[in-house]
Structure formats: structure tokens, C-alpha cells
């Protein structure tokens, strides 16, 4: 649906050039929810604004639904933008228009008749749960309600793509969840392709299929959300994941000082990560029985991404060194990721 090829963007100013994007390539399939996460200043907004040509790329191409966005003439671009809606961190509603008239705006500029507009706006307000607020002005709404208006307005033109620029960053966690649920809902209902940028990993974890990590104008890591979550390859990705799932050892463990070589006690500390089905199986019990080792769980957490459970356990394995190795090999065969942390002194 969206293909971004070797996109660069350089801002020129008196103070010097800023390369906001340094060759970004991405592909977003139809009906997908694609997340781009990055720190402030990484180039997220620049990237998403290049998709609808609010920002002209310096080089590279953006293709949306087969159209080369950069090559469209004025009128064609306006038409193309009607199929690519956008929602914003600060909602950007028209303060002088009621909720109803805000949602009606994109239809007005498409030249729809009054009756046709009403026919489309009302169900949308129903969908976002604001039909009783149709006559309110934005200043009379909460942040979450404003974003719902933003979403209804974005959907009015029946777009194929929805771009979300930090759509939940100005909202509290509870409201964020409800807006994300709404986005997920419309993604399914309208087979809408969604690209969202954020600096909050919770957003990615909650609704995205795929995620790209952007850093300093480059995509440094990309993949399925589960894959990136369970097996991050870059430090940036690890840090973001750390914001929702603790990757660090619990403090009491880092304090005791683990030894990298075997010590007398023979207790080995391992981190076991598991994804999906294996989470439900009695693997630890199996290892204890089969290999004559003792396993005690020191610390653990379990989470789920898009209905797939995954988690980490930090466990102490003790026994004969051969037995321990066999047990670890067994974990590997059961699709657990095993990471040896060290020996307990």
C-alpha cells in the first residue's frame, strides 16, 4: 500500500543544513498497522509528513496505492490527499466549528451535498461515541474526545490510509488505551492501512503489526512487533522495550555480583525468554524430572503482544554441571531463548 524508497530530507537554513532523513526505505502492506518509533528529533514527523507530501522529500520516492506521490500535479495531489487522512498529537480541530462541522469539513471541500454530508457524519460520530456531542465546540471537549473527533474527521473521506503523528502522546494512559482500541477497531472494520509514529513503546505493543525503529534519520531496526520485542538487535530498540518490559536484572541480583566462571555453589542464573505456545507448557517441570537439576524461579514477567503471550523468567539452575548443560539444551529444543547470566557466588 505504501512504499517508501530511499527517502532523504534535508532542511536548509541559515544556521546550516539538517539532514532529517538519510535514506529511509519502508514497505507497509494493505490493512496493516505499521509503527515507527524513535526519540525526539529522530525524524519521525518528517517521515510521516513526506507520505502525503506535506513535506517535500529532497530525494527518493513515496508510492501510495500505486501513485507516485512526488510526481502528482497540484490537483491530483489534493485528490490523493483525500484518500490519505491524518490525525495529530494536538488534534488540530477547527475551534470555530462544532464537532459535527469539523467532521463535515473534508466532505464540504469535496463538494458533497448537505444531506449527503449529514448521512455520513452521523454514523461516524456514532462510531467514535460522540453523537451526543455533535453540537459541542472543541473547547468543550476533553483531549480524548477531541482525538475521537479527529479520527471521525479523518475517516469522513473514506481514506485508504491513516497517518497518525503522535496521536496519543498528549493523552493519559487510560485514554491512550481507548484511542488505540478505536484505531484497531477501524483498522479491522475498514481494512484501513495505518502508519503511526510514536515515542511510546506501549503504542507499538498495543496495536502494531510491524515496527521500525528510527534513529538519527535512519531506520536501524525493523520487523514484526513480536520479533523485535523478543529479540531486539539494537541498543535503541532495547531501550524502548525496556520502557514497557523490564529487561534489566532486578536490583538485588545485580548487587550480588555474578561470576562468569563456575563457582563452588554450582548455581547458574539464566534468563529464559519464551514466546507463544511454549509459554503454556510445563517445560521447567520437565527439565527437573529429566535432568536431575533443581530450578527455582527468581523473577519473571509475562506479557502479550497481539494475543501472543511472551515472557521472561530469571531462574537459578543447580545441579551437576553436565546435567545443567543438558537442561539448557533441552530448553533450546523447546524454543526457549536461553541466556546465561552468570554463576551465583
Amino acid at each position: 500500500m505504501i512504499k517508501i524508497d530511499n527517502l532523504t530530507k534535508t532542511y536548509t537554513s541559515k544556521e546550516g543544513d539538517i539532514q532529517a532523513l538519510k535514506g529511509v526505505s519502508l514497505y507497509v502492506g494493505r490493512g496493516r498497522i505499521f509503527g515507527v518509533i524513535g526519540q525526539s528529533g529522530a525524524g519521525k514527523s518528517t517521515l510521516i509528513r513526506c507520505i502525503n507530501m506535506l513535506e517535500r522529500p529532497t530525494s527518493g520516492t513515496v508510492t501510495v496505492d500505486g501513485k507516485d506521490m512526488g510526481a502528482l500535479t497540484g490537483k491530483e495531489l489534493l485528490r490523493a490527499r483525500q484518500e490519505i487522512s491524518m490525525i495529530f498529537q494536538h488534534f488540530n480541530l477547527l475551534a470555530s466549528r462544532t464537532v459535527f462541522d469539523n467532521v463535515a469539513y473534508p466532505l464540504e471541500i469535496q463538494g458533497l451535498k448537505k444531506s449527503a454530508i449529514t448521512e455520513r457524519v452521523l454514523p461516524l460520530l456514532e462510531l467514535v461515541g460522540l453523537h451526543e456531542r455533535a453540537r459541542y465546540y472543541p473547547s468543550q471537549l476533553s483531549g480524548g474526545q477531541k482525538q475521537r473527533v479527529g479520527i471521525a474527521r479523518a475517516l469522513a473521506s473514506r481514506p485508504k490510509v491513516l497517518l497518525c503523528d503522535e496521536a496519543t502522546s498528549a493523552l493519559d494512559p487510560q485514554t491512550t488505551k481507548s484511542i488505540l482500541a478505536l484505531l484497531k477497531d477501524i483498522n479491522k472494520k475498514f481494512d484501513l492501512t495505518i502508519v503511526l509514529i510514536t515515542h511510546e513503546m506501549i503504542v507499538i505493543k498495543e496495536i502494531c503489526d510491524k515496527v521500525a525503529v528510527i534513529e538519527n534519520g535512519r531506520i536501524v531496526e525493523e520487523g514484526g512487533v513480536l520479533e523485535v520485542f523478543t529479540n531486539p538487535r539494537t541498543q535503541t530498540a532495547r531501550e524502548f522495550i525496556g520502557t514497557v518490559i523490564s529487561q534489566h536484572l532486578p536490583p538485588f541480583l545485580s548487587e550480588i555480583g555474578l561470576s562468569p566462571v563456575p563457582v563452588d555453589s554450582g548455581k547458574l542464573l539464566v534468563r529464559l525468554s519464551f514466546i507463544g505456545a511454549s509459554a503454556g507448557q510445563p517445560i521447567l517441570a520437565g527439565a527437573i524430572r529429566a535432568y536431575n537439576v533443581d530450578i527455582s524461579i527468581i523473577y519473571g514477567n509475562i506479557d502479550s503482544i497481539k494475543d501472543t503471550p511472551f515472557g521472561t523468567l530469571i531462574a537459578e539452575v543447580s545441579g551437576k554441571s553436565d546435567d545443567i548443560n543438558s537442561a539448557l539444551a533441552y530448553f533450546g529444543r523447546q524454543n526457549l531463548r536461553v541466556e546465561v547470566l552468570g554463576y551465583v557466588p
Binding site: L78, A80, R81, Q82, S85, F88, L93, Y105, I109, L163
Partner: peptide
Amino acid sequence: PHGVVEAALSMGSTPLEVIYKV
């Protein structure tokens, strides 16, 4: 606010529409 103008542009408004409607 510039964001409001930007929102109007993102919906495919012409410059005249931005002036008269926004």
C-alpha cells in the same frame, strides 16, 4: 495555529479553502 492549517491541507484543501474555511 499552524497545525490547523496543516490539517486542512492534509485533507486536500486548496489555498482558497484554507483562507475562507479555515
